[in-house]
């Protein structure tokens, strides 16, 4: 069993190596590979600018159908577990924002057709602030927020 897994892992890393070579040889330029990585949005210093760039608008409607699971108090801002889930239908993407971070947009998840609107990850937070989840459906942006108190910030040295 262990050996079988090792084979798979080796195969996986070989495949990754091939992509690396392709990038190195200029067959795939990095910007082409990451066509959907929105540099303007991720470098934006405030929430409206980030959302406008990422989703085309910063007009969001608060919706309680979006559930944000995060601790009320995070002892360590470097690792704050956040889970976003929603019962809204037709969800195209979900973004996670910490509004006091230097670059507030932390992550955006583009969901494929079979994906269930649920994502869970761990984020860094500079200080006590709202964790905002923005859900993009076909025609509208919805959001919800949860305050997380941070005792030790996770973005400084």
């Amino acid at each position: 069993m262990i050996d079988a897994k090792r084979r798979i892992l080796l195969k996986g890393s070989l495949a990754a190596g091939t992509v690396g070579v392709a990038v190195g040889a200029g067959l795939l330029s990095p910007s082409l590979v990451l066509a959907s990585w929105n540099e303007t949005a991720f470098n934006a210093k405030d929430v409206p600018a980030a959302l406008s760039s990422l989703m085309g608008s910063d007009a969001t409607e608060t919706n309680d159908g979006i559930t944000i699971k995060a601790p009320d108090i995070a002892e360590n801002g470097a690792v704050v577990p956040v889970t976003v889930e929603t019962n809204l239908s037709g969800v195209k993407s979900i973004a996670i924002v910490a509004d006091k971070n230097a670059t507030p947009l932390i992550a955006s998840f583009d969901l494929g057709e079979s994906a269930v609107p649920f994502v869970s990850t761990r984020i860094k937070m500079a200080s006590t602030s709202n964790v905002v989840a923005v859900v993009q459906t076909a025609d509208k942006l919805y959001s919800n927020a949860k305050e997380v108190k941070v005792t030790i910030g996770g973005c400084g040295g």
Binding site: S36, T83, T103, S114, T121, I123, G154
Partner: peptide, 28 residues
């Protein structure tokens, strides 16, 4: 999953080190 893209995540440096990611999909 089976060569179909289920989800694409775009991240900034605001995701914690040694990142954890969880997602769900139907039809698997």
């Amino acid at each position: 999953s089976k060569d179909q893209v289920v989800m694409t995540a775009n991240w900034s440096g605001g995701v914690s080190r040694n990142p954890y990611l969880s997602f769900k999909f139907s039809g698997g």
